[in-house]
């Protein structure tokens, strides 16, 4: 074993109980490695909290605090305020994190408060597009037509009838210095965005797309590939906002049809059964097309 491995283990150690191929555990490790040891992390309730801190074991090599489902951003605000009072805010970074439900649904109010008050915190949302910890229920970030246990596909339903909430724009609308999206399909992009965010003072938001083999029903070895396909089909644009303005988006040379992303995932299997499914896929392609135009995703020659 090399020195580097030992350092890694100190920040986010092996032995956590995430499922094999978990995109969120990968995301958390990437974020923490990029942030380094001078970091305090607060965590919302959810898969990440459960699989990394079952007493008496913990995977965290940095000070880590979990309280409740919806208050990760609020307890982080308290930690940051305490560091300010102690005169330590210039030397210690604060990261607040949660899943899609803990961020976009139940935790949205606390997150908005954190951003509006200008706390020097990086908030990271690990978006696996449903309440996975409780058994794959629909969240505000579940994509259109996804089959979840509370938005099941059925005789008269093709899954979740509602669109995915745009969290990056919601955060950017707070005119915070930095709001961005990235994906574990692009680990170096994740780490460079974390480093960039942490170099900026004030509230920052990073939205990470993290596949869930269990909830998305894809083989565990396809986590990275599926994450890449979400970006390459323009269903998950990787973008950056500064003070409310879109400043960059990851350009795509060849934009793949959405079927390539949908097909390997069991949560979309119902769309590949009949003519109605084809029409639904056309609607999903429409969402991708809108993203291409809105975020100007096409690479110029």
């Amino acid at each position: 074993m090399t020195e580097k491995l030992i350092t890694e283990k100190k920040l986010f150690a092996c032995g956590h109980t995430a499922c094999a191929g978990c995109g969120q555990s990968l995301g958390a490790r990437l974020v923490l490695e990029a942030a380094g040891p001078n970091t305090i992390v607060t965590n919302a309730t959810g898969c990440l909290e459960v699989f990394s801190t079952r007493y008496p074991e913990s995977s965290w090599g940095v000070p880590w605090l979990h309280s409740l489902f919806e208050n990760s951003a609020a307890i982080a605000s308290g930690v940051e305020s305490a560091l300010k009072h102690l005169g330590k805010i210039d030397t210690i970074r604060v990261i607040s994190q949660g899943g899609d439900g803990g961020t976009a649904d139940i935790g949205l109010q606390a997150l908005s408060g954190m951003m509006e008050r200008g706390h020097d915190i990086l908030y990271v949302c690990y978006d696996n597009e449903a309440y996975m910890n409780t058994g794959i229920q629909r969240s505000g970030l579940t994509p259109f037509d996804t089959n979840t246990t509370t938005s099941p596909a059925g005789k008269i339903s093709s899954g979740n009838p509602l669109p995915k909430k745009n969290m990056v724009e919601i955060c950017a609308a707070h005119r915070i210095p930095y709001a961005a999206s990235s994906s574990v399909g692009f680990p170096l992009d994740v780490q460079s965005k974390v480093k960039k965010a942490l170099s900026i003072r004030g509230p920052k938001y990073l939205h990470l797309h993290v596949p869930c083999p269990l909830g998305w029903r894809h083989p565990s070895n396809l986590t990275i590939n599926i994450a890449k396909l979400a970006v390459e089909t323009a269903l998950f644009p990787m973008v950056e906002y500064e003070y409310g303005k879109l400043v960059s988006s990851r350009k795509l040379v060849t934009i793949k049809p959405v079927e390539e992303y949908l097909k390997p995932q069991g949560r979309f299997a119902h769309l590949f059964k009949d003519e109605k499914g084809k029409q639904e896929i056309a609607k999903i392609q429409q969402i991708a097309n809108q993203n291409i135009e809105y975020y100007n995703l096409k690479a110029t020659k």
């Binding site: 074993m1 491995l5 092996c14 191929g21 555990s25 083989p219 396809l222 986590t223 990275i224 590939n225």
Partner: peptide
């Protein structure tokens, strides 16, 4: 890309994994 963080190595042909922790997800091979 290892979700466990159990792969080590830093120069070519030095990589390996800690089988005590590897869950066999297969993303490294892909």
């Amino acid at each position: 890309v290892c979700p466990e963080g159990c792969i080590f190595g830093d120069k070519k042909n030095t990589y390996g994994c800690d089988y005590q922790y590897c869950k066999g997800c297969g993303n490294c091979a892909v």
